[in-house]
Write a protein that binds this DNA or RNA. Structure first.
Lengths: 205, 205
DNA sequence: GTCTATATTTGGATAGAC
DNA sequence: GTCTATCCAAATATAGAC
């Protein structure tokens, strides 16, 4: 009997080609918009005829899904490993990471965090991975004593709002990035100074 | 010479047909997504052949633009006429109006506040109108003593963030709508208690 | 695995008769 | 203003030869 080769060169090459296709796809959506991904242009870019793409991906949505998975993984992998000890400073680092990650590639942000591609939904597996990202954020906030679900929701609203405004109204600029620190100070003070929330009373100021 | 008729029945009918087409277009985008607007389906819905639409709109983007103008006008017209005297309560009403308006019709929100339709940009005239809306908001905030541009930016980030999360992660629900009041209290306290901002010093807490 | 050829659908838009 | 007829382009996807 022949021994099995250590490496599967065929599989390696296949993976490399898949990666090459995905790279070209990212390039295309960054250039022309997420919704404008076209299998024709994509095939031409990588030097294939359009039908050949189907040897690597079952459909166009399968490409979107692979891109989604890549994006989620990048979000997790690139997260800062260590955070400042002081909670408010850690929040600033976290928020800057989120806004920076999203504004660095608006098409990716659109794919991951907005649901604007008609007919595309991430696969269950990819979606599961994405939930890990939010869970990690929740865990970090909990470490700072921020445990209420409402506070987590407020945090996500803040960082996505800053991101959204930055992308929509000052693309490539820093207008909303520049108030991230301010927003986090506001958030931190509010969530850790909740005497009025517990009493449910109206704030008399 | 014949006297000119008081009413131009032809023009009236034309306007009515245009309105009917736009109504059908809204229906379609609410159903299938903003990007999925199709002139064929649209024509079929209003009982026309597709080319007949071109008697009323020069192009598909002209339809988007008319919808944009309608949306902006609706946002302005539906604004609450009077606000509570207390600033923080007024902020809550304003924010609830914004989030309510947007979540009531996510396709409209996408058209007005996100720029996700490839190739579409609102006409200069429509865009001008939309800036009036923001100017009004700025004026109201100024009336409450909130005049710094950064504060206005923070406000818009907050309300769009709440809107975005509500639409993306709890469509039809109230998860983020339920923290609008809380967010506005946070915002108000932060923007009116700025001793630390002026000194530019790091907050010692 | 890649190609050619093709199917199929759909899209926006125009020409010209009535 | 509306229609028929048509164009043109682009899209995703499949069949089958090599």
């Amino acid at each position: 009997m022949l021994g099995e080769p250590i490496r599967d060169r065929r599989a390696e090459r296949r993976e490399a080609t898949r990666a090459e296709i995905l790279d070209a796809a990212w390039e295309q959506v960054r250039e022309s918009g997420l919704a404008a991904l076209s299998l024709r242009d994509l095939a031409r870019t990588v030097g294939m005829q359009p039908p050949s793409l189907y040897s690597y991906f079952d459909s166009k949505n399968a490409i979107y899904d692979a891109m989604y998975a890549q994006g989620v993984q990048a979000f997790i992998d690139d997260q800062p490993a260590a955070l400042p000890e002081r909670a408010v400073e850690a929040l600033k680092v976290m928020a800057h990471y989120f806004v920076g990650f999203c504004t660095a590639d608006p098409a990716r942000y659109q794919l991951l965090f907005q649901r604007t591609i008609p007919g595309f939904e991430p696969s269950a597996e990819s979606y599961e991975t994405s939930k890990q990202g939010l869970a990690r954020t929740a865990g970090l906030l909990a470490g700072f004593g921020i445990t209420e679900p409402r506070s987590l929701d407020l945090y996500t609203a803040l960082v996505t709002g800053l991101t959204d405004q930055q992308i929509s109204n000052d693309p490539g600029g820093r207008r909303w990035i520049g108030i991230v620190d301010d927003a986090m100070e506001m958030f931190y003070e509010h969530t850790t100074d909740k005497t009025s929330t517990r009493t449910k009373g109206r704030r008399t100021k």
